[in-house]
């Protein structure tokens, strides 16, 4: 049987791969993919902590994960819509060229 820490290491790895995608890729969609990965890693942690808690535990982890999935879906929809809107406006999805907020 794997221990809780093994699961946590897996989810930490997933989180960092998501971070890598969000930090390193130039294409805006990759940033969204990375964020979705990080959210999935967090969900994995919720479920893992619930499963390894002293039993019987109330299914709080499960409920939070369900809500997190719903919110992540909303985030993905808005994020992708923004990618399309930005692309229409600037004719690019390269985040390096999107620096209108520069101080």
């Amino acid at each position: 049987m794997p221990t809780l820490s093994m699961l946590l290491v897996v989810s930490a790895a997933l989180f960092c791969i998501g971070l890598l995608a969000a930090l390193s890729r130039r294409h805006a969609i990759f940033i969204l993919i990375g964020i979705e990965m990080m959210l999935a890693a967090a969900n994995l942690n919720f479920i893992a902590f619930w499963r390894f808690a002293p039993q019987p535990a109330p299914p709080t982890g499960v409920m939070v994960a369900i809500f997190a999935i719903a919110i992540a879906a909303a985030e993905a929809a808005v994020g992708l819509a923004m990618v399309i809107a930005v692309y229409r406006h600037f004719r690019t999805t390269n985040v390096d060229q999107l620096d209108q907020l520069k101080g």
Partner: peptide, 18 residues
């Protein structure tokens, strides 16, 4: 004062958060 620190690059912000 603070705006000097801002490059407008979203990935720089994300890296700082990380």
């Amino acid at each position: 004062l603070m705006s000097r620190r801002h490059s407008g690059q979203i990935q720089t912000y994300l890296g700082a958060i990380a």
